[in-house]
């Protein structure tokens, strides 16, 4: 077993885990943060995307022990419970950026990372290129792209990062 301590959504957490534990397993099974999904489990689909030290990564391809001492943000960390949604979440709601919703947490975490890297004015082309690692099996990409463009703009006027 391995002892780990890290910051998840701003809160210090600890765990005594088998080193084999994937970050996504630790989040879902130990911390019960089930917003992060396991889709393909092969680093293709992006349903498991979280932010590790502020950067989008695939938590199905990261060992939880490798995140020891680091900072993780999941979809649950974007906005507080009961508070208004994060602008990117709100944009997905407003523009119907989801059908079944399974890929949505990963799409939104990827989108927020994209805004951090490339700013608030994103062309459709850039958004589509940047969604390379996120698959939607409902093939709802059109509204996902519209949602991300709108969410990126809305983030410019929000306190939520």
């Amino acid at each position: 077993m391995a002892k780990i301590s890290l910051i998840v959504n701003g809160n210090p957490v600890t765990g005594n885990i088998d080193p084999r534990t994937l970050l996504v397993q630790f989040l879902r099974e130990n911390l019960r943060l089930t917003g992060t999904h396991v889709g393909c489990d092969t680093s293709q689909c992006g349903a498991c995307v979280v932010h590790l030290d502020g950067k989008a990564v695939k938590s199905c391809t990261t060992l939880a022990v490798m995140a020891d001492g680091h900072e993780v943000k999941t979809i649950e960390g974007l906005a507080a419970d009961g508070a208004p949604l994060h602008p990117m979440q709100e944009a997905f709601r407003e523009h119907h950026g989801l059908q079944c919703g399974f890929c949505t947490p990963g799409m939104i975490m990827t989108a927020v990372d994209l805004v951090h890297r490339k700013g608030h004015d994103l062309s459709d082309h850039v958004i589509r290129e940047e969604l390379e690692g996120n698959l939607c099996r409902c093939t709802g990409y059109q509204n996902i792209v519209v949602s991300i463009a709108a969410g990126a703009k809305a983030m410019a006027n929000s306190d939520l990062a």
């Binding site: 950067k55 989008a56 990564v57 990827t110 990372d113 690692g133 996120n134």
Partner: peptide, 9 residues
């Protein structure tokens, strides 16, 4: 290489 999340690792 890969996709944005893969390139971060």
């Amino acid at each position: 290489i890969g996709d944005p999340a893969v390139r971060h690792k």
